[in-house]
Design a protein around this nucleic acid. Structure first.
Lengths: 347, 347
DNA sequence: AGTTAGGATGGGAACGTTACCATTGCCACT
DNA sequence: AGTGGCAATGGTAACGTTCCCATCCTAACT
């Protein structure tokens, strides 16, 4: 019969009702209709296979019921896990998620931002690419920043408690008897979470009697430079065991590959990373990680966004989640854990 | 100034032009406008920060410029990789992607389908959950099925050449000297790709002089049953080496975990899987896989969809991609590869 | 009985855009 | 000079909804 999708009007005439009534039925005023009318509309709609046109609805009411999400790297399991949480939370609150992947490219970030704006998304969850984006700063749509802070943008931030994470990592490494730590990160400039972790690392060394060394490099870089740096670190003579600490999942993967290429089994030389990955228990002897509560992060990002939608003027939130230590063989030094150099030994 | 987003009309009056001209400027008739007018509109739009409202555009023209994608399990790296390809391809063709994750739940599949329909997406890329969905069959929106065929739905299919994949796997295992193969799959009923792989497995054994055993189980199931089955298979006395073949990435992960729990190092007992994963090179001694060309699959899914959009009546496509063998240590039997029992030895 | 409150319903004007048709010039024909 | 055509622009009616207001009816008041 109808070649195109049936409209409100079609349903109305089929049910012998007015557009308004049908609109009410599908909106949130269904109770205002008499039982008889509800029945008629339900039947007619069912029969025609009607589903309200969200475009039209969004146009008239100004509510798109859409939330946009910008992910820097969709192939990063951490991002996917958070995204999963975000999507669930959105759905729970009656929003749909429009997802865009920027592949860490500022140009795509800009483009997608414009796109999402043109769909009049009501809110934005953004995991920004590193580089500074004026377009992001000028954001007029309520925004929650994921994992990465942006200096110039007035937006809520949800992510990991980076200082706590690094301290937990250093505590664990120190307790396991490691005394020198090689910190492996992607280039930290411009990316707040990396900067925070790096700074916390630097500050956290001395109080624990640790020595540290920092190595930053892009993960897509050739493996050789990482291998070389790692190998130099490991071969350098030292009195106590050494460990490698990876600032995120990408680097954990890179470091594990480097260990593998150098034919070094983690443990005697420690290996630890932030972000839990499927395979961390599988690579011998198991790789110690700090797992991020990805679902919680996703949910709280949406919760935060909705709060801002409800009250645009409220103070900016900065929600920091705590990681969970997954201790495995890669940080069992082999030498029995020694008490820290100076401190009390009783406890 | 303006509290809400500026409209076409705002730009028009700011530029001293008509709505039509501005519409033309932002549509695909920009060349029809004189240079002077283009200039004026560009300036005005820039200054107001105008971006056309896609909702309104979609409403009037009937073109949402939206493609919907339904993914059964967003935490499956294979799905994500394909999705990445789909998104790229969409963007290249001027479409945006609306992504929904069904978490393998038919109810969510139904729900999301309705949602996408209500946004009037022009096409659908679906990776169906297993169970039979009348809603999917009745699909009136042009649809491409990913990886999984649906009996009752008239839709194009894009995926792996499952028969070829299994044959490549069996060829490889046979060539490496394995003679008994334990086939590990998620429950195959209702899911065409699993059924195809399973059937190909069964048919491919005899010609190669192999013996086979099939084990199906849900991946979220407790590990013990898998471990028990695996252990029974491995301990059974046999004249020649045995191998485990995993039907997809999830099962490869499960099997690797089981090997790990049983403290068996793959190799003497072979281990191989369909789907390449980050860590397959990392787990000792490297896990042999068949990599799917995920980007190509994503791109061809969109290409296929666009062809159908252009010509709804054309014959149904069934595009099968070929996998790539990533041979690693987990299928190096240790015994030198013997020539197949009967066949010619000269080649 | 007359008035009024209020519940149920319908009519019509937006929302921001595009599609169609109309209008204006201007130039090149015969 | 008159006509036709084309290029450049503008006006207006949709698209499918929701929102505001009007209308009707029933029931409960004075």
């Amino acid at each position: 019969m109808a070649d195109r999708a049936p409209t409100l009007h079609d349903v109305a005439s089929a049910a012998g009702a007015s557009k308004t009534s049908v609109s009410r039925y599908f909106g949130d005023e269904r109770e205002r209709l008499s039982a008889a009318l509800q029945e008629r509309i339900a039947t007619a709609a069912e029969q025609l296979g009607f589903s309200p046109n969200r475009m039209a609805r969004g146009l008239k009411g100004g509510h798109s019921r859409l939330i946009g999400m910008l992910v820097a790297d969709i192939r990063n399991p951490f991002s996917v896990a958070v995204m999963h949480g975000v999507e669930q939370a959105c759905r729970q609150h009656g929003y749909s998620l429009m997802l865009c992947n920027t592949d860490n490219a500022p140009s795509q970030e800009r483009e997608h931002l414009a796109l999402l704006a043109s769909y009049r998304v009501e809110g934005l969850v953004i995991n920004p690419t590193g580089s500074h984006q004026p377009a992001l700063d000028a954001q007029t749509i309520p925004t929650v920043l994921l994992d990465r802070r942006l200096d110039h943008a007035r937006a809520d931030v949800v992510g990991l408690d980076n200082r706590l994470a690094i301290e937990m990592a250093l505590d664990h490494l120190a307790a396991q008897g490691y005394r020198e730590v090689f910190y492996l990160s992607e280039p930290a400039a411009q990316v707040s979470s990396r900067e925070q972790r790096l700074a916390s690392f630097r500050h956290g060394l001395a109080p624990r009697g640790l020595r540290g060394e920092v190595h930053c490099q892009a993960p897509d870089c050739a493996d050789e430079s990482l291998q070389a740096a790692l190998s130099a670190f490991i071969q350098r003579p030292a009195a106590a065991p050494k460990a490698v600490l990876c600032a995120n999942g990408n680097m954990t993967l890179a470091a594990t590959r480097a260990f593998h290429a150098l034919a070094i089994r983690p443990g005697a030389t420690g290996l630890m990373g932030i972000d839990e990955l499927d395979w961390c228990g599988l690579v011998e002897p198991g790789i110690t990680t700090l797992a991020q509560p990805t679902a919680a992060i996703g949910h709280s990002a949406v919760a935060c966004l909705l709060k801002r939608l409800a009250d645009p003027a409220r103070a900016i939130d900065d929600i920091q989640h705590s990681p969970t230590l997954m201790a495995r063989g890669s940080t069992a030094a082999g030498t029995p854990p020694q008490p820290p150099p100076a401190a009390s030994s009783g406890r």
